[in-house]
Each structure stands twice: as C-alpha cells, then as structure tokens.
Amino acid sequence: MKLPENIEGLIRAQNERDSTAFANYFTEQATVSDEGSSYSGREEIKQWIQQATEKYNMQLKSLDFKQTGSKGELTVEVTGTFPGSPAVMQYNLEFDGTSISSLKITG
C-alpha cells in the first residue's frame, strides 16, 4: 500500500521513537485526542507521544489509509507492552495542507 509522504513519515517517526519528528507532522495549533485526554500544540503532542512510547514501547504497522479532501482515516496495528497488544486502532485525521491539524485515536 502506497501511503502519502506525511503519513509514511508519521509512522516512521513513531517506530523510530523520534517524538520531535512525529510532532513536526502537526500544525502549531494541532490537537490530539487519545484515551480520554486531549493535547494541544506541537510541544504537548511531542510530550504525549514520547511518554506513551516510553510507557508502552509502541510500534505501528499501517493496514489501510483513506483520504477525502482534508479528512483521512488511517487504520494501524499497534503493538507494545499494553494489555490487548496487538490492537487495531483508527487514526481519524484532519489536514491543513500536508500537516495534521487534528488526530483522534479510537480503537
């Protein structure tokens, strides 16, 4: 499956545990919703992904990606040290150009 460069880069940054590179795929005012919490702006997103990766040792594998206009849905298999691993999750995305303005994780 051929992914857009920004989605491929986001997954690569996650799997390489590069929280700075991960956060740089988001706009300055982007929001992330995950496990009942919200994070705003690149710095909070960077801290969130760094803590989650350290806690759960997460790795992502893309299963599907669909995009219509400024909205996208990425289906990933997430493996790590959390109960129920591996888990299939949906990354519901909104884009501002090629940058992510919103990410809601469900699964």
Score class of each variant (00 low, 15 high):
1 M>E: 12
2 K>I: 05
4 P>S: 07
7 I>R: 01
8 E>T: 00
9 G>I: 00
10 L>D: 02
11 I>S: 01
12 R>D: 08
13 A>I: 06
13 A>T: 03
13 A>F: 01
14 Q>D: 04
14 Q>L: 10
14 Q>M: 11
14 Q>G: 06
15 N>R: 09
15 N>F: 03
16 E>R: 06
16 E>S: 10
16 E>C: 07
21 A>E: 00
22 F>H: 00
22 F>N: 05
22 F>P: 01
23 A>C: 05
24 N>D: 12
24 N>M: 12
25 Y>D: 00
28 E>I: 13
28 E>D: 15
29 Q>V: 14
30 A>G: 05
33 S>T: 15
35 E>I: 15
35 E>H: 15
35 E>K: 15
36 G>E: 07
38 S>F: 11
39 Y>V: 10
41 G>T: 06
41 G>E: 06
43 E>T: 12
46 K>D: 09
46 K>A: 08
47 Q>A: 15
48 W>P: 00
48 W>G: 01
48 W>R: 06
49 I>V: 15
50 Q>I: 11
50 Q>C: 11
50 Q>T: 15
52 A>F: 11
54 E>N: 12
56 Y>K: 08
56 Y>R: 02
57 N>Q: 15
57 N>C: 12
58 M>F: 15
60 L>R: 01
60 L>Y: 10
60 L>D: 06
60 L>N: 05
61 K>P: 04
63 L>H: 08
65 F>E: 01
66 K>E: 09
67 Q>Y: 05
68 T>K: 13
69 G>Q: 09
69 G>W: 08
70 S>Q: 14
71 K>S: 12
71 K>C: 08
71 K>Q: 13
71 K>F: 14
72 G>K: 03
72 G>L: 02
72 G>A: 08
73 E>I: 14
73 E>P: 00
74 L>H: 00
74 L>D: 03
75 T>P: 02
75 T>Y: 02
77 E>C: 09
78 V>N: 03
78 V>R: 00
79 T>R: 07
79 T>V: 14
80 G>Y: 03
80 G>S: 08
81 T>L: 14
81 T>Y: 13
82 F>C: 04
82 F>I: 07
82 F>A: 08
83 P>D: 15
84 G>Q: 11
85 S>T: 12
86 P>Y: 10
87 A>M: 13
87 A>V: 15
88 V>Y: 07
89 M>L: 14
89 M>K: 13
90 Q>V: 13
91 Y>K: 03
92 N>D: 10
92 N>F: 06
94 E>Q: 09
94 E>R: 08
95 F>T: 04
95 F>H: 02
97 G>W: 01
99 S>Q: 14
101 S>F: 09
102 S>C: 10
104 K>P: 00
